[in-house]
Amino acid sequence: MRRQLAVRLSLVVVAFVVVQETLVLEARVGGVHPDVIVLLPIAAAIVGGPARGAIVGFVAGLVADLFLPTPFGLSALVGSLVGYGVGLVTAAMDRTAWWLPPMAAVAGSVGYELLYAGLGALLGQPQMLHVNIVGIVVLVASVNALVSVVAVRMTNWALPAASTEGMPTSAGVSLR
């Protein structure tokens, strides 16, 4: 079971990284491009809770860091925090509600980009604060809100449905 989970999760992470490094990098608006890898910890947190959100954020962040010129490990750090945070905030919410993925994507993306810039500056990269942060936050959050449902479905496939056991749903019964 764990092996299957690892394989599926790896496939989803690789798919997101390939899309990010090819199609998404080309879609620049005013020198800024979207960042769909941010969606992975958010989707994992919605599907599996704070622990899985943090773990997926860490793994996806480490893979993303391989392609970024920014400090290695920074995406992993921010991904873990955002995954945990989204999982914690959405813990008491109806996880089958249609509005949850886009709402969580917007809030999580805003938090991710601000944390990324802030922690980057704190860890010795002050120039990371001198970017078009408003443009980055608006573009990343908007695109991620649109793609969030796909991300949640893919993450739902990768992570076993049993992980949502005991969580509230719109029908008032636990997911199994």
């Binding site: 704070p50 622990a51 480490l62 290695f72 490990g73 992993a76 750090l77 873990s80 925090l81």
Partner: peptide
């Protein structure tokens, strides 16, 4: 407490990686 423990471990590992990479050790 499990999620918090996991988060703490991941944060510590991440910060260690960032620090070691910045120092050139990694």
């Amino acid at each position: 407490r499990r999620p918090r423990t996991i988060l703490l471990i991941l944060v510590l590992v991440s910060v260690t990686i960032v620090t070691l990479d910045a120092r050139g050790s990694l």
